[in-house]
């Protein structure tokens, strides 16, 4: 009852050479193993591209920011009113000036110092706290795990930005308050991933061996388990730097940042906000570009590194 090419009772067999994506369609001696290996090589190449592009993007922002004090820049806080609202590429002001005559490039670079210091401090605090809490939860289990997991869940449910705004509004926008607030927002991420990794790691034979040798629990955890997972966790912490910079700029945009006249990225954009309608869009676009470039860079480096660490651990995705 079927066509002559098919045996009765058998479904129509598609020509495998025409099935896209089918390895059987290739007329070569390429085996599945070789294909997988070439895909791995391509992934490796792409992760290298990501890391380099990311490093260049971040470097373009970070290096001038770090050197801001050394570079021959005009004062970021006091400007000359005679030079107010110059467009970019004016003489002496590469990126132009704001209505107070303050040099935009200088403000962006000095503001970047504040933003980066807050960012690095925040990820240091949140990374440290997250790793300690996550490792303890994963390794000891029991009530320690219950308490830390509940805390993580409860924080997920809170309206985070609102809470952060509230705390900064109430306790004043000083650098320690802003740093701690960002660290508080970020500790769940490293904690969660550390906990998950430790849960896998503690079942491995070397941990059992260390236990048999009579090492105390704490030193097994801190000297054997944590160093093995640290690389993966640090990539996540590096990615948090991007989030920290974004969060800091968001807070200062909403007026909960380091106070005027000290520039921060979000603050500069917020100041430029009322003015861009009157035809000075560079006061908003240029500082935003600096943030975006840095964050893209950090994210790309982090993503590339993550691909690499995953591959080293034999993950096929």
């Amino acid at each position: 009852m079927t066509t002559s090419t098919n045996l009765p009772g058998h479904p129509q067999v598609p020509n495998l050479a025409e099935v896209p994506g089918s390895i059987l369609g290739r007329e070569s001696a390429v085996t599945k193993v070789l294909l997988r290996r070439s895909a791995a090589a391509r992934r490796a190449r792409y992760s290298t591209v990501k890391i380099w592009v990311g490093a260049i993007c971040a470097g373009v922002v970070v290096i001038p920011v770090v050197l801001a004090g050394v570079l021959p820049l005009p004062d970021p806080i006091v400007g000359a009113l005679s030079e107010s609202s110059l467009p970019p590429f004016s003489a002496g002001h590469l990126l132009g000036t704001d209505p107070n005559g303050r040099d935009l490039l200088s403000r962006i670079l000095h503001g970047g110092q504040t933003s980066l210091v807050i960012g690095f401090l925040a990820i240091f605090v949140s990374g440290l706290f997250g790793i300690v809490a996550g490792a303890a939860a994963g390794y000891f289990g029991g009530w320690v795990d219950t308490i830390i997991s509940r805390l993580l869940e409860a924080q997920m449910a809170l309206p985070l930005l609102l809470m952060l705004l509230l705390v900064v509004a109430l306790f004043g926008p000083s650098i320690p308050v802003i740093t701690l607030v960002i660290a508080f927002a970020q500790w769940p991420e490293p904690a969660r991933i550390t906990r998950a990794l430790v849960l896998v790691e503690r079942e491995k034979p070397y941990v059992a061996a260390a236990r048999v040798l009579g090492l105390p629990k704490f030193s097994i955890l801190s000297r054997h388990v944590v160093p093995n997972i640290l690389q993966q966790v640090l990539v996540v912490v590096l990615l948090l730097l991007a989030q920290a910079v974004l969060l800091e700029s968001a807070l200062s945009f909403l007026g909960a940042g380091v106070q005027r006249p000290y520039p921060t990225w979000g603050g500069i954009i917020s100041d430029g906000r009322e003015l861009f309608v009157t035809g000075k869009p560079w006061l908003v676009t240029v500082p935003g570009l600096a943030i975006a470039l840095l964050v893209v860079g950090v994210n790309l480096v982090g993503d590339g590194l993550r691909d690499r660490v995953r591959r080293a651990k034999g993950d096929q995705t």
């Binding site: 991007a242 974004l246 968001a250 945009f253 954009i269 676009t285 935003g288 975006a292 893209v296």
Partner: peptide
Amino acid sequence: QSMPDFWIGFV
């Protein structure tokens, strides 16, 4: 995911 949302809004 790297661009600040207020900045995207302004642009």
